[in-house]
Every structure is written in C-alpha cells, then in structure tokens.
Design a protein around this nucleic acid. Structure first.
Length: 427
DNA sequence: TCTGGGGTCCTAGGACCC
DNA sequence: TCTGGGGTCCTAGGACCC
C-alpha cells in the first residue's frame, strides 16, 4: 500500500506540470493606464529621453523599451509620454507577487513584475495548477486592476516560454504529454539564454526552431557556443531543466552606472561622478553589512566601446571614499592606456566578492591598513566615522539630507533615482 | 537599433601552487 | 634537469536577462 502510493505519487509528480511563471503585461505602462484612465487604449511610453516601457498600443507601432524617445516619436507621432509613478510600480509589483504567495510559499521573484512558483504542494487546497493560475490572474485583475500572463509547465524554462506565448493577458498550460510538440515548433530566440548573437550563430548552421536545435549534435553546439552554453541549450531543447524554485538568493555583486552623455574626459566630472556612484553602492553595502573585495570600473567612450579594469583586495571594503578613490585610480589607468579617447559617454562601478556576513567594525582596521600606505593613519578612522554619521542622518531625514559635496555637483541624472531603485536587487 | 540602469554567468589566458 | 598534469585565483571581455 505504502509502496504503491509512493510510486503512484512520484510517477505522477514527474509527469505533472506544477511550475508557474507569472509575468505582468507591459507593467509600467499598464500601471500608468490604471492610474490615469484617459490613457487607456492609447499608445503611451513611460520615460522621456529613453523609453522605459511601452503600452501594447505603442508596441503595435514598433515602439520598444530602451528605445530613444526621439525615435519612438517618429514611429508613433501620437505617442503620449508620461513620467513614471515609480513608487506605485513597487507597491503594485509587490502586491501581485503577494497574491501568488497566498497560494504557495515556493515563490521565486525574478524582477519587479515577474515570478516563478511551484504549486505541487498546494493542489489539494486550491485545485489543479491550471485552476490556481486562473485564480491568480483573476485576483490580480480584480484586486489590482492589472493584466498578468501565466505559463504552467513541468519546468521553469518551459513555464517561462509558455507565459511569453500567453501574452498579452493570457494563460497557457503545457501538458507534459505533448510538451515537446509544443516546444519544438517555436523559434530558438524564445529560449532563455538565446539572444541576438546566439540566434545569429545558430542561423548560420540552419537552426531556426527549438526542434532543429534539439536535433543538432551536441559536439556541434559546443563548438559553436562553447561547452557551457552548448550543453545547457541542448538540455533545454529537450525540456531537461534541473533548476528548482529558489525562494531566496544572495546578490553576488552591487553596482551603479551613469551615462554622462559624451562629456570630455575632465578630471572634475569624472571625480564627482565616481563619488556619486561610490556613494550609492557603498551605502547599500553598509546597510546590509556586505562589503566586497573586488572593485571594477567600466569606461564607455563616445564610440560606445567600453573598457573595464578591476582590482581584488585582501580584505573587503564598504567605505564610500575608499571605494571612490580606488575607482578613480582604475579609471585613470584606463585613460592612460587610451590617450586618444577624448570623450566619455558612461562610467560604471561594480563591487563583487561580497562578504556573507561582516561586522562593520572589522572594517575600521582596514581603513587604517589602507591608509598605512599613505601617511596620516587617523584619516581612515575619520572616514569610517563620517560614513556612519551620513548613513544615520539619511535614515532619519532622507537621502538628500546630506551628502558628499562634490558628488551633488554636475551629476547628470538621465533617469530618476526612484527608477534606479526598482532595478536594485536585494543584497 | 546604438539607447538606460542593475544584474548573472561564461571564457580564456596568466600566475601560482602542488 | 626536463617533462607532465591538476587545481585555484585573478583579470578582461562578452552574451544575456529584466
């Protein structure tokens, strides 16, 4: 009896589609149309200089996220631009994920508007996965007023593809019995990990559909795409996706960047921009007690070519000024190697090799250690104390209550800070 | 179609160690 | 002395994702 049950259950479970992928449709644009009824049914874009999101009505004209605003206007002259309600995006995104969480604790949030869930353990409470998916869509629609598409399948990869196929505002359930028939007629670019470059490489050997990819010999894919990508894609083409739902995942890096729009490589502008970036990153690192050992910078020149430089330290850092100074040294080294580049279009800093747990006090000796190379050991302590003070004041009075004088000057904010926050991952 | 910001993972070569 | 093999870490660059 027990054995029969056991085999019955596992046998059925292996063939049952219990993974959901839920994805809010044209999220930012849908929120704007929700908040401002006169925008409903119209082509709209969130953003200004750059299109951050486009409604489906705008997409019909070819308007896409990331597109320059000017180009979007040419494609769609009647396009309405709206500046975003970023706080509302966060609130409504959280609320939608919470609806899924009402059915199962096994929720893996991918971004502000997208999540996986495994409902294997809650079908006895709420019904078949397809019924749960329908209920989620209904609740998000009635309680939040937003359209959301859901894919249901046996694996994460296929559930994600199913939700893409379901858009807009749809539900696609992939029966495990016929999953390969469903998968194999779709184009390769729907697969996770196939972007423009990989799509073009596959096209060179005549592979356009996932079915054709599945029938391509493994050695051929590995020669074309490298061992890791080749093996991964071959597995996914047969819907062999070992990834499970992960409810929690620590960030491996934290970074920030700023497009400074073709400014001359002027030392003052570079310094103030780097200080501003370092300030934002280091504050996040300190807030989570996760200093990092590797500091990388990226300089993008006017011709859009970019160069990176990094250093790995013996001990982790999270002090604003130390990070800014290291970044400045790295940028200087890049500029010294590229004397003919006169114009910088973007600066970026990233910190990785993040410590899991760290007592911030331990960083004090590091500050001293770092300063030991230069005279004036007490400066390290002063910096550490200054960071702590700034963090506390900002906690109470807000980010702009205090800052590093230089950082506030001449920093171009092409995108609102609230938008940047939406993209930040929890550390 | 070259435009924004925050991320992940992979590759290849070199240094270094056993 | 030459020769071989394996492992880890670091750096720079690239592809991809939302």
């Amino acid at each position: 009896m027990f054995l029969e049950n056991f085999f019955g259950r596992t046998g059925r479970m292996a063939r049952t589609a219990t993974i959901l992928h839920a994805d809010l449709d044209a999220f930012y644009a849908s929120v704007e149309q929700l908040l401002v009824p006169s925008l409903r049914g119209k082509p709209i874009a969130v953003g200004g200089g750059v299109v951050l999101a486009a409604s489906y009505e705008a997409r019909a004209f070819g308007v896409r996220g990331g597109m320059p605003g000017r180009q979007a206007r040419v494609l769609c002259p009647q396009l309405t631009f709206v500046s975003g309600h970023f706080k509302e995006y966060q609130r409504l995104g959280d609320a939608a994920i919470k609806v899924i969480g009402d059915f199962t604790p096994l929720v893996e949030r991918i971004s502000i508007d997208e999540a996986f869930a495994d409902v294997a353990g809650c079908t006895h409470l709420f019904g078949l996965p397809a019924e749960i998916a329908t209920a989620i869509r209904q609740r998000v629609r009635t309680e939040l007023g937003l359209p959301i598409s859901v894919g249901v399948a046996r694996t994460k990869h296929l559930a994600k593809i199913a939700s893409q196929v379901a858009k807009p505002d749809g539900l696609v359930v992939v029966d495990p019995e016929t999953e390969l028939e469903f998968l194999h007629h779709l184009p390769v670019e729907l697969m996770w990990g196939v972007g423009p470059v990989t799509k073009a490489r596959l096209a060179e050997i005549g592979v356009l559909t996932i079915g054709q990819l599945a029938k391509t010999p493994g050695w051929s894919l590995e020669r074309l795409l490298g061992p890791a990508a080749g093996e991964k894609l071959a597995a996914l083409a047969w819907n062999r996706d070992p990834r499970e739902i992960r409810t929690y995942r620590r960030a491996r890096s934290a970074g920030a960047q700023s497009a400074i729009g073709g400014k001359p490589a002027d030392a003052r502008i570079i310094r103030s921009t780097l200080l501003h970036l370092a300030d934002r990153i280091a504050t996040r690192l300190r807030a989570k007690s996760r200093p990092g050992r590797t500091v990388a910078v990226r300089v993008r020149f006017a011709d859009l070519n970019s160069v990176t430089r990094s250093v790995t330290l013996d001990a982790p850092i999270s002090a604003t000024v130390i990070l800014a100074e290291l970044a400045e040294e790295l940028v200087s080294a890049i500029l010294a190697d590229h004397p003919h580049e006169k114009t910088i279009s973007l600066l970026a800093i990233s910190v990785s090799h993040l410590e899991e747990h760290w007592d911030l006090e331990l960083e004090l000796p590091l500050g001293l250690q770092d300063e030991a190379r230069r005279p004036g050991t007490r400066i390290g302590m002063a910096r550490w104390a200054a960071d702590c003070a700034v963090d506390k004041i900002r906690d109470r009075f807000g980010w702009d209550a205090i800052g590093y004088g230089l950082a506030a000057l001449g920093v171009s904010r092409s995108v609102p800070d609230e938008f940047r926050k939406l993209a930040e991952r929890g550390l």
